[in-house]
């Protein structure tokens, strides 16, 4: 039985579409920010559609096919003009932990309801980048 036998036909097609979009963005100068919303827009899907979500998550997690890495952007509620501050590895680990928190990099205070201020986005995994430039 193939490792991907559990994927439906819709899921396989969605994975193909995602890989196509990711590859063309990687090659182009205008990579854009690969948020769930943007990936949905570029593939003609909807955020929240289980097929779309399953496939994005698969491409970000499957040990053999991982082409995406998730990173986080913090939008400071006290700075409405902010473009979003990328969180470093340590901040990301704390933010995603089961009993997590986020320290505002500017004030040093813990952010209330921090989960509503963090937007996940994806970057190509090392494997994908090495493949693209190799």
């Amino acid at each position: 039985m193939s490792e991907l036998a559990f994927l439906s036909e819709r899921e396989l097609l969605m994975c193909e579409k995602l890989i196509e979009v990711i590859s063309s963005r990687l090659a182009s100068r205008a990579q854009g920010v690969w948020t769930y919303s943007n990936l949905a827009k570029w593939t003609g899907s909807k955020v929240g559609d289980p097929v779309f979500m399953n496939c994005v998550n698969l491409l970000a997690m499957h040990p053999d096919f991982r082409v995406l890495e998730m990173h986080l952007l913090f939008f400071d509620p006290e700075d409405p003009e902010s473009d979003g501050i990328p969180l470093d590895d340590e901040q990301t680990a704390h933010a995603l932990a089961a009993d997590g928190f986020l320290v505002n990099p500017r004030t040093g205070d813990r952010v209330q309801n921090y989960k509503s201020t963090i937007v996940p986005y994806f970057k190509p995994s090392k494997r994908l980048e090495d493949g693209a430039h190799g």
Partner: peptide
Amino acid sequence: VTIEQLECYGATSTVARIQWATMRWHSGA
């Protein structure tokens, strides 16, 4: 989409819950 919304999505089904957990682990937690 925010982390809060992903967490809510993670509560919509067993599959989503599992995926959200492993996604967090992969991302450094």
